[in-house]
Structures are given as C-alpha cells and as structure tokens.
Amino acid sequence: MTLFDSVDLKRHTNLELIAQKVVEGFIIGLHKSPFHGFSVEFAEHRLYQPGESIRNIDWKVYARSDKFFTKKYEEETNLRARIVIDISSSMYFPGKEVDKDVKMNKLQWSCLAAAALTHLLKKQRDAFGLTLFDEGLTFHSEVKSNSAHQQLIFSTLDKYVYNEQVNKKTAATESLHLIADAVHKRSLVIIFSDMLEHPDKMEPMFDALQHLKHNKHEVILFHVMDAAKELHFEFENRPYEFIDLESGEKLKLQSNELKKEYSAFMTKYEEELRMKAMQYKIDFVPADINQGFDQVLQSYLIKRSKMRV
C-alpha cells in the first residue's frame, strides 16, 4: 500500500500534514532512484565529497538512502510559480453517487497535488502563488515564499477539499487570458484542469495558453481525469442517469450503448489536447486521479531543472 492509497479525506484531515507526508515519501523514493540530480536539487543537499567536514552530513537522509549528503544553506529564490486550479463543477467528478468506493474527486486530487507542490516549493525557497477559476477568477494570491503565505494557500485549498458546489460553469479561455494579464513577472504556471470544453472552443482555449507563453511564462498543464470512467467509460452494464455537473442536464441510458463511441471520442479529444500543447511548447501531463502524486512532483522537478539550465 502506498501513501496515496491510505489518504483519507475526512473533515478532520490536516491538508498540510498530508502534503508533507506526500513530499517526504517522494524524496525517499528519489534518493533510492537513479535520479540523484533531482533529489539533490530538491532536498537542498549535495553528495558528500571525501575530505569534506562531516559536520553538515544529513544523517536522516543517510539512514534512508545509505548515501552521504551534506546540507546546503545558501539563501536563494530560484523560481516564481503560479499554481492554477479549475474549480468548476465538472471537477467534482466522480462523487459517491457514481462510485461508493471513490477515494477523491478531481478537485480534491488537484488540491492535494497543489498542497504537495506548495510544500515542495517552500522547501526549495521558491516563491509561489495560487489562482482559482471557474467562470472567472475567484481567488488570486500574491507570490511569496514565507510560512504565513503557505498557510493562506493551505486554508484556501482546504475549503475546496471538503465542499462541493454544483452548476458552476467553466470559462477557461477568459480566465486564462486574465491570468496571463495578471502575472507580470516570468513564472512557471502550473495548471490543473479537466479541460472539458466543447471541441469548437479548443482553439480559443489554447490561444489563451499561448498568451501565457507569449508573456515568457513556462507552462505545465495537468490534464486531470478519472481515466477509468472519463476516458474508458468503465461503468457496469446497467441503466444510468448521467448528470452534467455544470448545467444540470440529465441523460438516461444503458452504459454499454455509449461506451465504444464515447471512449473513441474522448481518446481523440485527449490526443488533440496533447498535440496542441506540443505545438505551443506547453508541457502536457495526463494526470489520472487514481494514481499518486509523484507524476506531478516529478514533472515539476524536470521542468524546474530545465528552466535553470
């Protein structure tokens, strides 16, 4: 069982504690992996060199990895990061009415991933800010790296981990243009969204992402999905009433009547998203909420290392 498998999103859960445990587990995994460059850069350590003083050796890291790392103390702010989360109603899928065993919905997953990223950014002395959008910008923080700012981010995310709001539509194109105009200094913009727009709106939506690139920002787009249900339509073969969480529109049908056509459409849609992202030099990362958060943290570290070259 992984840490992700054991996450229990009850009201008493401490979001900051979960984020800390996710990141610590990720560090241990990196120390045991061949990606030493990422682990050293992330953990603010460097490999111990024979002949150096042993005063700064981190013995806790040694106990986990069986390797000597010395602590780095240089004060530096390497990066400005803006975390952007789509909080429209489609992000509350799936709910208990869809799957009684569901661990978390797309928005809860995105908030936990964002909390883990915030913890990681602060440990690296990077500055971070948070933006939430649905039909417009509902929250847009400053970019800072101190503990008080981190607590503001956690308390804001906490509201969306435990509350569900229906019939909140998405205006991704307009919101992304607003974000591009509001973020004045070059930043890494990290977006969590299911990108569920009408195919006719895909081009304008990517024009908005291109606006961010035009303003010299680097962009990582996490395409947040419940892959089993939203991509492969894995429902029991029985009648369902499907409800559009943003409009409230309802549709009754037998699941196997739609599965083949729906799955083919969604697979094509995701591939078009991927190709558009490649065209605009945007990092596109399929993010399945049934998987852990390493996919987010490692994508960020890879991007961060490239930005510092």
Rank of each mutant, 00 (worst) to 15 (best):
N78F: 11
L79A: 07
L79Y: 07
R80E: 13
R80L: 15
R80I: 10
A81G: 13
A81D: 06
A81N: 11
A81Y: 01
R82C: 11
R82S: 08
I83D: 00
I83P: 00
I83L: 15
V84P: 02
V84W: 01
V84G: 02
I85C: 09
I85D: 00
I85Q: 01
I85L: 15
I85W: 02
D86M: 04
D86A: 03
I87M: 07
S88C: 09
S88R: 02
S88W: 00
S88L: 03
S88M: 11
S89H: 03
S89T: 03
S89N: 04
S89A: 14
S90D: 09
S90R: 07
S90I: 05
M91H: 04
M91E: 05
M91V: 06
M91A: 07
M91Q: 15
Y92Q: 12
Y92F: 14
Y92H: 15
F93C: 07
F93M: 09
F93N: 02
F93P: 02
F93S: 02
F93A: 10
P94S: 06
P94M: 03
G95A: 12
G95L: 14
G95T: 15
G95C: 03
G95Q: 14
K96G: 06
K96E: 04
K96I: 10
E97L: 11
E97Q: 05
E97D: 13
V98C: 08
D99K: 09
D99C: 08
D99P: 09
D99Y: 04
D99H: 00
K100F: 10
K100E: 10
K100A: 04
K100D: 09
V102P: 02
V102A: 13
V102K: 00
K103C: 06
M104K: 08
M104I: 11
M104L: 15
N105H: 13
N105G: 12
N105K: 12
N105R: 05
N105M: 09
K106V: 05
K106W: 02
K106P: 05
K106N: 04
L107D: 04
L107G: 04
Q108C: 06
Q108F: 02
Q108W: 06
W109S: 13
W109C: 14
W109Q: 12
W109H: 13
W109P: 00
S110I: 10
S110C: 09
S110W: 01
S110P: 15
S110R: 00
C111L: 11
C111V: 15
C111A: 12
C111I: 04
C111P: 07
L112S: 03
L112T: 01
L112I: 14
L112V: 15
A113S: 12
A113Y: 02
A113L: 10
A113W: 08
A113E: 05
A114K: 11
A114F: 08
A114W: 01
A114L: 13
A114I: 04
A114H: 12
A114M: 14
A115V: 11
A115P: 10
A116M: 12
A116F: 07
A116T: 09
L117M: 12
L117H: 08
L117P: 07
L117E: 14
L117W: 04
T118M: 09
T118G: 14
H119I: 05
H119V: 08
L120S: 04
L121E: 11
L121N: 09
L121M: 14
K122L: 10
K122V: 15
K123C: 01
K123G: 10
K123E: 10
K123D: 09
K123H: 13
